[in-house]
Amino acid sequence: MATSRVSKHFLFQLIFLALIAFNRANGRSLTPDFYKHTCPNLVYTIKTVVDEVMSVAPTLGGPLMRMHFHDCFVRGCDGSVLLDTPNKTEKYAIPNLSIRGFQIIDKVKSAVEKVCPGIVSCADVLAAVARDVTVALNGPSWEVEFGRRDGRVSTVNEALANLLSPFANISTLKQGFQAKGLSVKDLVVLSGGHTVGTSHCAAFNNRLYNFTGKGIQNDDADPTLDYEYVPKLKSKCKFGDRNTLVEMDPGSFKTFDLSYFSLVAKRRGLFQSDAALLDDSETRAYVKLHALKDKAGFFKDFADSMIKMGRIGVLTGTQGEIRKVCTKVN
Rank of each mutant, 00 (worst) to 15 (best):
Q175Y: 12
L187H: 04
R152I: 14
D106M: 07
R148A: 12
S110G: 03
I119W: 00
Q217L: 15
G197W: 10
G193K: 01
K185E: 13
L182F: 04
Y209F: 14
V135W: 02
S183Q: 07
R131I: 01
L163H: 06
L163C: 02
V133D: 05
Y229C: 06
L126H: 07
N157F: 09
K174T: 04
A159I: 11
L126S: 08
G192Y: 01
S154C: 11
V125N: 05
P223Y: 09
P223C: 11
K107R: 15
D132W: 07
T195P: 04
S165Y: 03
K109H: 15
T172K: 13
Q178D: 04
C116F: 11
T198S: 10
G192I: 00
V135G: 01
V115S: 12
L160P: 07
G118H: 07
V189P: 02
S171Q: 14
V108F: 10
G147E: 06
G181H: 04
R149G: 12
S154K: 09
R152H: 09
R149V: 06
N138Y: 09
G213W: 07
P223H: 11
L208P: 07
K180G: 00
L208E: 06
E158V: 12
K114D: 13
E145G: 04
V112M: 07
K214P: 00
W142A: 01
A127F: 02
R131L: 00
H194K: 01
C122I: 03
T134F: 01
A130V: 00
G197Y: 08
G215I: 12
Q103F: 13
V125I: 15
C122V: 12
P140E: 01
N218L: 15
